[in-house]
Amino acid sequence: MVAYLSLHDVCVSYGRNQVLHNISMNVEKGQIVTVIGANGAGKTTLINAISGALRYSGQIRFKDSPAPFPAYKAARAGIVQIPEGRRIFPNISVAENLTLGAYALKDKSQFASRLEAVYKLFPILEERKDQAGGSLSGGEQQMLAISRGLMSDPELILLDEPSLGLAPLIIQEVFELIKSLKEQGMTIVLVEQNAKMALEIADWAYVLENGVFVAEGSGKELLADDVVRRAYLGVKEV
């Protein structure tokens, strides 16, 4: 049985600076897999490698064939990244952001129904559909970024720091949403600094330090792990 998404000895360098060292990981279909790690550990680089957004050595396989490259082909094959910092397009309207999100949608007749579903999920986006993306609040922008990703009917969602810069209440909402995406059958790779919440919803998790996986286990196991508790959960005494 080959994993749905598998990485084998993946290395990434920027010039002479190697950021990822021999990363191997497996993601099963329908799982939430979390990668936690400090700032600069290489989390975004990992997500970008899976997205086909940068060159890597080693193997990444998706659904039993080499992962598509470059990024736009990966997106068309159902691998959608919701990037760190949202990166919604600030100068075009909310509705236009969603239109571009549906660029990789294979069956264009689904467009209207997907748009409706997204607006049902986040009514505020429908209210603001003619406003420029840049005029939304941080939380609304995150909703737009997730919605934009969902417009193409993805199979595998790569979420990079979705909680960054958001108010606690909205973070809660985002994590609820991630869980519901899993229930709808999507596979999710979640990269987070907010380790506690990420581990709580994870089926399987990896700890990334300086470009190397130093631990892995189920979300529960890692939540109970002393080292992880000290380093990532802010627990001083065990």
Binding site: Y72, A75, F89, Y103, G149
Partner: peptide
Amino acid sequence: TTIGIAIRAASTDLFTPNLLGINI
């Protein structure tokens, strides 16, 4: 048109369109 919207979006960001399946 979608390609036109993509052109306008590209004026702020040449990277993210790739993630949405747009060949920049």
